[in-house]
């Protein structure tokens, strides 16, 4: 599949990040949850990959595994590969991975209030990276922290570095989080639902800021969200996840025009649309599978309106649909050739 999957011109070796067939399970007394069952995606420098999927589909766990901050135990990587600029991460030592964190890859989280340490000023939390990673003096580091706040367009940055996270509004706090993640100038940024906790008007501002920073710095951006609406404008490519797998991947344009997987279709129908105001919001019936007991065949079949006998027995292959598109549905070709 990778032969056709060369948007952005990168060969597999020059890829910024390549995740391949990643398996992660969470072990507990009650059994083993198969949280990731072969996730593959990649992102190149300067492009935005959106990762979509319902709650529990494994978007965050994939990101944490890439960053090397998975809670182990209970989480264990049981297979696959994560390559950053061709370097295998899963076999790299913890010291090497720590070196890369912040400096090469960084992450921002959904809830900036809980993701920032409540007892330290935001300046302290940004400056500590300059102090302990770059060996700067306390004073210089603080000045750099103020510069970072300025860069994410927080007014009055010089004063605000001395404030604590709870003194910022939700949107400003997420800007602090972005400033902090970009402090060491990483070339890969993973944003895990950066706008979910925010007001709709603020959401757009934060998305614009992220997009602008990505462009200026030529970063690769992985944008995790379950909101297809947010994605439409900023994403170059989209990977849709279900039950710990990528079930469809495509460039944003073709995906919106014609989804190649019934699950993606369901997600699209649940976007609130202005012209549909007053109509009942369609959503996918049923619930995602329990990860300790994923149904045989296509994991989506109990909820799929197209399911046939074959779906209950045979796990669908990834069907290559050309131009970097692929879908894990037995009827992928049919789906995209509809009009």
């Amino acid at each position: 599949m990778s032969a056709v999957d060369n948007r952005g011109g990168g060969s597999p070796e020059s890829r910024l990040l390549e995740v391949e067939d990643l398996h992660v399970e969470f072990r507990s007394k009650d059994g083993t949850a198969n949280v990731l069952n072969g996730v593959s995606y990649h992102v190149d420098a300067g492009e935005t990959l959106a990762v979509l999927g319902e709650s529990g589909s494994g978007k965050s766990v994939t990101a944490q595994t890439v960053m090397g901050i998975l809670d182990t135990p209970p989480g264990f990587v049981t297979g696959g590969s994560i390559r950053y600029r061709g370097e295998e991460m899963l076999t790299a030592g913890e010291e090497r991975r720590r070196e890369l964190r912040g400096e090469n890859m960084a992450m921002i989280f959904q809830d900036a209030l809980s993701a920032l340490n409540p007892v330290f000023t935001v300046g302290f939390q940004i400056a500590e990276q300059f102090r302990f990673r770059r060996g700067m003096s306390r004073k210089d580091a603080m000045a750099k922290a103020a510069e970072m706040l300025d860069m994410v367009k927080i007014p009055n940055a010089k004063q605000r570095v001395k404030e604590f996270p709870h003194q910022f509004s939700g949107g400003m706090r997420q800007r602090v989080m972005i400033a902090m993640s970009l402090a060491l100038d990483p070339d890969l940024l993973i944003a895990d639902e950066p706008t979910t906790a925010l007001d709709v008007t603020v959401q757009a501002q934060i998305m614009d800021l992220l997009d602008e920073l990505r462009r200026e710095r030529g970063m690769g951006l992985i944008l995790i969200t379950h909101d297809l609406g947010v994605v439409a404008e900023v994403a170059d490519r989209i990977s849709v996840m279900y039950a710990g797998r990528v079930v469809e991947k495509a460039d944003a344009h073709s995906l919106y025009k014609q989804p190649g997987h019934p699950y993606t279709e369901g997600l699209m129908e649940s976007i609130p649309r202005l012209d549909m105001k007053g109509h009942e919001l369609a959503s996918i019936q049923g619930l995602p599978p329990t990860l300790t007991n994923i149904p045989p065949g296509c994991p989506f079949h109990p909820r799929c309106h197209r399911a046939e006998d074959a779906c209950r027995e045979k796990v669908p292959e990834f069907h290559d649909l050309g131009l970097g598109r692929a879908s894990a549905c037995h009827f992928a070709e049919e789906l995209i050739s509809r009009d």
């Binding site: 944490q64 960053m67 901050i69 720590r98 070196e99 890369l100 964190r101 912040g102 400096e103 960084a106 992450m107 989280f109 809830d111 809980s114 993701a115 920032l116 340490n117 409540p118 500590e128 990276q129 302990f132 990673r133 902090m180 993640s181 402090a183 060491l184």
Partner: peptide, 11 residues
């Protein structure tokens, strides 16, 4: 969460 953030910063 903030411990996870601190780790993600590479401290």
């Amino acid at each position: 969460d903030y411990i996870r953030t601190a780790t993600a910063k590479g401290l």
